[in-house]
């Protein structure tokens, strides 16, 4: 057996949300398959929790990967501490070379601790990868999302957290479902106790279905400047005003109008990002938009890497001119 064949598997850990597989779970499966192919080892997907079996079957069907379903009675909702302990206990059996977690509030609640426990290399927010000589190296956003750092692990095992939306969902193939192995584990004793929290803030219902979203970032400077964005929104027949998290934190817009990781995920025909820097926490909520126009005074703002059209301008000067031009050339629909 060659050294490459002796390598432990790439293990993706599925993320569950609201009783099902979160979409990012299948993206993790895609990356696991790619990596395992390059490294010459197996790829596996772990599904962890109470009622894991049907989800494990579903994951095996959708990903085609070998799935380990770990039935844990009492693990009804996410617990970072339980994930960390359970995965550490499964470690000798799994013996992974790589563990893939989602770069989400859940993944980030257990992956760093697991890396410490298992003395693993830790690379977070992975958005790309490639082989450099014989070693994979991983790209992540840094410096407010403005640059890409390529990071090489110096050892195994390696824990990666993977940015949602960075890798494809497995193609809907006719490939055979992966093999499902079922394990049963006791809920480990946890010092932290989890229970359901408050209701999420009610979402602006128009936001999800809007064909045009005009989104404000901190770059608008002050709440009064939202009026400019309302003027801009008024150019369209059905535009909805939204904001990045900092704008909602400041109380300039309600949390129901937040777009991003902890807010709404939208994909309008047109997304006008006004004074938005383009941090990943925001862009995961709007990157699937049809056409993206970014207006920002910082020419190096990360949002420009995601935009179809980039306008390097101060909003306060630009928007009134834009509104005037659009109005002057007629055809205003409202």
């Amino acid at each position: 057996m060659s050294a490459a064949q002796a390598m432990g598997p790439v293990v993706a850990v599925a993320e569950l949300a609201e009783g099902g597989l979160a979409p990012v779970s299948l993206e993790l499966a895609s990356l696991a398959r790619e990596l395992a192919g390059a490294l010459g080892c197996q790829a596996k997907l772990v599904v962890l929790g109470e009622g894991a079996e049907p989800l494990a079957q579903e994951a095996a069907r959708l990903s085609g990967l070998a799935v380990i379903g770990v039935e844990v009675t009492g693990l009804e909702m996410f617990s970072g501490e339980a994930h960390c302990r359970l995965l550490a206990d499964l470690w000798p059996q799994l013996n992974p070379s790589y563990v893939l977690a989602a770069h989400t509030t859940s993944g980030l609640d257990w992956a760093p601790g697991l890396a410490v426990l298992l003395e693993a290399a830790y690379i977070s927010g992975v958005e790309s990868w490639r082989m450099e000589a014989d070693t994979p190296c991983f790209g992540r956003a840094a410096q407010h999302g403005k640059v890409v750092e390529e990071i090489e692990p110096l050892q195994e095992p390696v824990v990666l957290t993977v940015q949602p939306g960075s890798f494809p969902q497995p193609e809907a193939t006719t490939a055979e479902p992966g093999r499902v192995e079922l394990l049963t584990r006791e809920l480990p004793p946890c010092r932290s106790k989890v229970s359901p929290g408050a209701e999420a803030p009610s979402r602006d219902a128009a936001l999800a279905s809007a064909s045009v979203v005009v989104a404000a970032g901190r770059g608008i400077g002050k709440q009064a400047n939202l009026e400019l964005l309302r003027d801009l929104a008024g150019l369209f027949s059905s535009a909805v005003l939204a904001g990045s998290r900092p704008v909602c934190d400041l109380g300039w817009l309600g949390y129901g109008q937040q777009v991003g990781q902890t807010g709404a995920t939208v994909s309008p025909r047109l997304y006008l990002a006004c004074g938005i820097s383009g941090a990943r926490q925001h862009t995961v909520g709007m990157q699937a938009s049809g056409f993206i126009v970014a207006i920002n005074s910082d020419p190096q703002a990360a949002i420009f890497n995601l935009a179809d059209v980039c306008v390097v301008e101060d909003l306060l000067g630009f928007i009134p001119v834009l509104v005037e031009q659009a109005g002057a050339s007629g055809n205003k629909l409202t």
Partner: peptide, 19 residues
């Protein structure tokens, strides 16, 4: 256990037409 081997500008995900 890991090291940064390169820092670069991200590729454009879309056209990125600068007006």
């Amino acid at each position: 256990r890991e090291r940064v081997i390169r820092v670069s500008l991200p590729g454009k995900k879309r056209a990125g037409l600068v007006l």
